[in-house]
Simulated scan of single mutants.
Amino acid sequence: MHIDIDKDVCIGAGQCALAAPGVFTQDDDGYSTVLPGSEGGTGHPMVREAARACPVGAIALTDT
């Protein structure tokens, strides 16, 4: 699974970081980002929930 965050859509609500804190965080500007080294965490059970929790749909998950 690949995680893509559309920075042009993200509003920095932080719902992804709340749902899957081991995979998502917020950068210095307050926008969501994938934690360094956690790309392997895409199998984390809450990643799909984090994507669904995004109020603006900025997170796209694609199976690889």
Rank of each mutant, 00 (worst) to 15 (best):
1 M>A: 08
3 I>C: 02
4 D>H: 10
4 D>I: 01
5 I>P: 01
6 D>K: 05
7 K>A: 09
8 D>A: 14
8 D>L: 03
8 D>Y: 00
9 V>I: 15
10 C>V: 03
11 I>E: 14
12 G>Q: 06
13 A>C: 15
13 A>K: 04
14 G>N: 07
16 C>M: 10
18 L>P: 00
18 L>D: 14
19 A>Y: 04
20 A>Q: 07
20 A>K: 03
20 A>I: 09
21 P>G: 09
21 P>E: 06
22 G>T: 13
24 F>C: 06
25 T>I: 04
26 Q>G: 06
26 Q>W: 02
26 Q>L: 15
27 D>Y: 05
28 D>W: 03
28 D>L: 10
28 D>G: 15
28 D>R: 09
30 G>Y: 10
30 G>H: 12
30 G>W: 06
30 G>C: 08
31 Y>S: 01
32 S>Y: 08
33 T>G: 05
33 T>Y: 03
34 V>G: 09
36 P>D: 15
36 P>S: 12
37 G>R: 10
37 G>I: 12
38 S>V: 08
38 S>L: 10
40 G>W: 05
41 G>P: 04
44 H>K: 05
45 P>C: 07
45 P>S: 12
46 M>G: 02
46 M>Q: 15
47 V>T: 07
47 V>P: 09
48 R>I: 06
48 R>T: 14
49 E>D: 14
49 E>L: 12
50 A>S: 06
50 A>Y: 12
53 A>H: 05
53 A>K: 10
53 A>W: 06
54 C>H: 07
56 V>C: 05
57 G>A: 08
57 G>C: 05
58 A>K: 03
58 A>V: 02
58 A>M: 03
58 A>E: 03
59 I>Q: 03
59 I>F: 03
60 A>E: 14
61 L>K: 05
61 L>M: 04
61 L>F: 01
62 T>N: 08
63 D>W: 01
